[in-house]
């Protein structure tokens, strides 16, 4: 991403303004502690000696594979519907746009378990949408792998939409006009100008959505249940294991922590550029 000229100097840093006040420094340090200490605790408490044998457990492998597949599918669905939705929010003026944006944001603040209940009552075989479908084709969504993907999409989509909308707003509004004067239709402008320019923003939005889908628990267990090999993703496996085997749960948690940090590091390297320093 192009850096603002002089951006580094405008943020009020530097010794010229005097010493950092303790009233800010101490709470800041506490904040770091709140975030980091539990993760250190997890690393310290993990039984490293049994790590390798635990990772080869077939239930773990199955849960990990299911998590990776469903999170990737959810991210794909998020991209397919989320990028156009973000474009509409960023580029089209219409009545009710603010309302629509508020609606899109709701799953962001909604407890995932509530989202899961909402999905369940809507799509189960007696629900307003699931009922007719079940009557016709005999398929019910809840407690299937597809339900996992839908639950993950439900919670991850707002992350993608908001982040892509931001990227679309900051890049390329004026370039749409340039493209129009060169004879390009809006569709063609979207494909050949908007998408490439917003590429980094879309990529980081996709990573955020993927990470959110990977960690999804509440909506999944409510809507998709906890069936081994079908809907038991890593967070559910951790939860299930913890009831009987605390050490095993620690190892699985560490695995997800490593995956999350790897994603964050990849984002920072490739897409954030100077944004995170």
């Amino acid at each position: 991403m192009p850096r603002r000229p002089g951006g580094a100097r405008r943020d009020g840093a530097g010794p010229a303004l005097g010493r950092v006040p303790a009233g800010l420094l101490i709470p800041a340090a506490l904040g770091v502690a709140v975030l980091v200490v539990p993760l250190v605790g997890l690393v310290v408490e993990t039984p490293w000696s049994s790590l390798w044998s635990r990772l080869q457990d077939s239930a773990v492998v199955s849960a990990l594979r299911l998590s990776l597949i469903t999170a990737t599918l959810a991210m794909t669905v998020c991209l397919l519907v989320g990028v156009p939705l973000a474009w509409v929010l960023a580029r089209v003026q219409f009545r009710g746009r603010r309302l629509l944006r508020a609606l899109v944001t709701v799953p962001l603040v909604l407890p995932p378990v509530v989202g899961g209940i909402a999905l369940l009552v809507t799509y189960n075989r007696t629900g307003p949408l699931g009922g007719p479908v079940y009557d016709v084709v005999g398929f019910q969504l809840p407690f299937s792998t597809a339900a996992v993907v839908l639950a993950q999409t439900f919670v991850a989509l707002p992350f993608l939409v908001l982040s892509v909308e931001g990227a679309l707003r900051s890049t390329g509004g004026p370039f749409d006009e340039v493209a129009a004067t060169l004879g390009a239709s809006r569709w063609s402008t979207f494909r050949r100008v908007t998408l490439p320019l917003a590429g980094p923003g879309i990529a980081s939005g996709a990573v955020l959505a993927w990470a959110r889908a990977l960690g999804e628990f509440g909506a999944t267990i409510t809507f998709a249940g906890n069936r081994p090999d079908v809907t038991r993703t890593m967070p559910l496996e951790i939860y299930t294991t913890y009831n009987t085997d605390r050490e095993g749960a620690l190892i699985l948690s560490l695995l997800l922590l490593v995956a999350s940090v790897a994603v964050l590091a990849g984002m920072r390297e490739r897409w954030m550029g100077g944004a995170i320093r």
């Binding site: 004026p174 370039f175 340039v178 493209a179 129009a180 004067t181 060169l182 004879g183 390009a184 320019l197």
Partner: peptide, 20 residues
């Protein structure tokens, strides 16, 4: 007639070349 159909060429103040 919308801009894309006008066959008008425009040079903008900042050039506005597509950066990609």
């Amino acid at each position: 007639v919308e801009a894309a159909a006008r066959r008008v060429g425009m040079v903008f103040q900042e050039g506005m070349l597509f950066p990609h």
